[in-house]
Simulated assay, not measured.
Amino acid sequence: MSRPHEPHQPFFPFGNPFRMLSSSHLSRKLLILSNTFEETLAGRLGRLNPKDKDEVLSFSWMKLAMESLCETHNDIKTLITELELPVCDWDEKWIDVYLDVSVNLLDVCIAFSSELSRLNQGNLLLQCLLHNFKSNSSKLFIRARSSLDGWRQHVNSKNPRVENCCTILDKLVKSLDLPKVKNSAKGKVLMSALYGVKVETIFVCSVFAAAFSGSGKKLLELNVADKFIWSQAYTALQTSVNGEISNILSSGRFPVLKELEAVDSSVKKLYPMIQDGVDPVEVEAFQNSVSDLGRRAEKLSQGLDLLTKEVDSFFQLVLTGRDALLSNLRTSGTDSDGRLLGNGTERV
């Protein structure tokens, strides 16, 4: 792992655990399954690479990123089915890794959902603000100023759950060093595919954490070996998105989310207009500014709602996968080692 301000370090100082994954060790069926998964992931990462840098940190791009993540996690479920690799044949280490990673992902989702909920609460202040602007009463203008102050303080405050994401992401990065697979061609395909899933997951989650916290410390840069079909697409995506986010953060802009920044710009424009009441000469300019704020606030509200649904969908996807694995462990008798099920259920 390396962060933007640190030198790049290889993930596998003791050798590449995927060195045995080659066409000479796989049957034609397994090779097709592996290549199909990787080619699909490469295409998905390529589509996620924004054509315009202004798309980065917009709700539309973040929604697309979360949708992409859900699709990739669904693909790994499909791959496991096609591999015909029942849970009873899984190595205990694979199960441990899966349970640890999934519970960390649930924690990350909860942090993101709490931040989206917090931003939605800020919308209530905006709606109150816009309502007060419908009257010329000086008393209501005082309330409007109070709402403006409240909103600005709200959006500039920090969410402890998002701040803690850095620790969770570090755990996910450590999980990239997957358990060694011996005498199982299907296991090698599964571990290789899981590596791709986790790389995309870590990337998307680190971008979200950086966007919500306004901190470049949440950004992660991963070195991916060229042997993976999707490595070039991932490197291009990471370079493009992380580079633009770093530029935004280094400029001192906050908030950094596009729609939130647009609302904040309107608020800053309105604030001096209502300090001592609106001058008759400035009435038209004032009304235009209020209308502009209303449009931007509505766009922000819609973006928050759509992104919240996608984060919730990802949470449910991860949770359902955990439930399915734990259920299979119980029915297959793998739960004879109580440590496994204890590790899986108690942390949830």
Rank of each mutant, 00 (worst) to 15 (best):
S157L: 12
P280N: 07
L341K: 06
K269M: 13
Q302K: 09
L257P: 00
K174A: 11
Y98T: 03
Q238A: 15
V197L: 04
I76V: 13
F14A: 04
T239N: 14
S138W: 10
I168N: 06
N164W: 11
A285P: 04
K217I: 02
I76Q: 07
A185N: 08
L130H: 03
G122E: 12
Q302E: 08
T334N: 01
H154V: 03
S137C: 08
S24M: 00
L257R: 12
L317I: 09
D100M: 13
D54M: 03
R3P: 07
A209Q: 11
E39N: 10
E115A: 11
T81M: 06
K93V: 01
F59Y: 15
D96F: 02
W90D: 02
K309N: 04
N35F: 04
I76C: 10
S135C: 13
V173F: 06
F59T: 06
F254W: 14
Y271A: 15
P255E: 07
R44W: 08
P10I: 07
E6S: 15
I110C: 01
N242S: 13
L176D: 03
F14E: 07
H25N: 14
P7L: 15
S24K: 14
V207M: 03
E259Q: 14
E6W: 13
C165Y: 00
F141T: 07
D177A: 04
R143H: 11
V56D: 01
T36L: 10
S250I: 12
K268V: 14
G277V: 08
D264T: 04
V290P: 03
R296Q: 13
A262M: 08
L129P: 12
S27Y: 03
I248M: 06
